[in-house]
Amino acid sequence: MSPEIVLDVRGLTVEFPTRNGILTAVDNVSFSIAKGEILGVVGESGAGKSLTGAAIIGLLEPPGRVAKGEIRLKGERIDGLAGEALRRLRGRRVGMVFQDPLTSLNPLYTVGDQLIETISTHRPDLSASAARERALSLLIDVGIPAAKDRLFAYPHQFSGGMRQRVVIALALAAEPELVIADEPTTALDVSVQAQIIALLKRLCAERGTSVMLITHDMGVIAETCDRVAVLYAGRIVEIGPVADVIHRPCHPYTIGLMGAIPALDGEEDRLTQIPGSMPRLSAIPQGCAFHPRCARTSQTCIDERPLLTAAGSGSAACWHIDPALTGAGS
């Protein structure tokens, strides 16, 4: 009954050695994504969302490195891959969509050339005309009007939303099993965001592609994802089915996060805030990283780090998960 696991991350830890010691940007993160599933990853800037994505596709910028943990794609270890093996993984098995479509495309090549280049790199068996055919059908698929002519257009001749469609076409060009979308709509107009998300969702559903959707937009998560992982200071504080995490958050941080989202039908006219701010990587507190900002802090929270434990239909990393807390959300 349980669906096939595509991506399995266990105890992933990403470190940056600096002159003042080692900074741990992603700390013991574990999650998995099933075939065709969309996992949302939310958190504030610096929570380690993007680095988790970069670690999976092997694009951590040195000196950043995977210090501990395992990343498996369909059971196969993909952390620690290098050189040619890593190159074959990228694009072919794991695709990636970046935040800013304006800078993701090479300005000097036509859209068609970039698509064909990607296709023929991963499918050397395809003839030039077959690769061109595929490029065209991808452009049509992502909803570029007059795709046939647009193959010969340069990125600067496209609008932001259209460029992001091209980027998605490029990420899907070699039919990867997993797409990591790193804030794919943050740089776009609000009116375009929904279209892009819907497009990504449709294309991946058609292909059975799994998606790791990194964002800080809870609205996008709610609309799109099957499950969601909430990151705080490099750790997963809560992970579970999206409806449960939004409506019945267990972790105090998630509860605070949900309280900070404006609701049109809400009775109160002030949003709740979480006091303080996320700690810097060089000063992550002992025990639970959230304890200095948490209303429920006890001595255990200061002394000992909570691990992810079952809570509701998902899991949360908190010492104070109790029935009273569960369901206290909006």
């Binding site: 596709i57 190159r87 990228r90 694009g91 970046f98 800078t103 000097l108 990607t118 790199t121 060009a173």
Partner: peptide
């Protein structure tokens, strides 16, 4: 350091194509 180089890597292009085709041409 630019994004399109990172994206070219993420697409799994060969190093030579990235270095000479994408980076050097720019």
């Amino acid at each position: 350091r630019l994004d399109f180089i990172k994206f070219a890597r993420a697409r799994g292009l060969k190093n030579r194509a990235i270095h000479f085709g994408h980076a050097f041409k720019n």
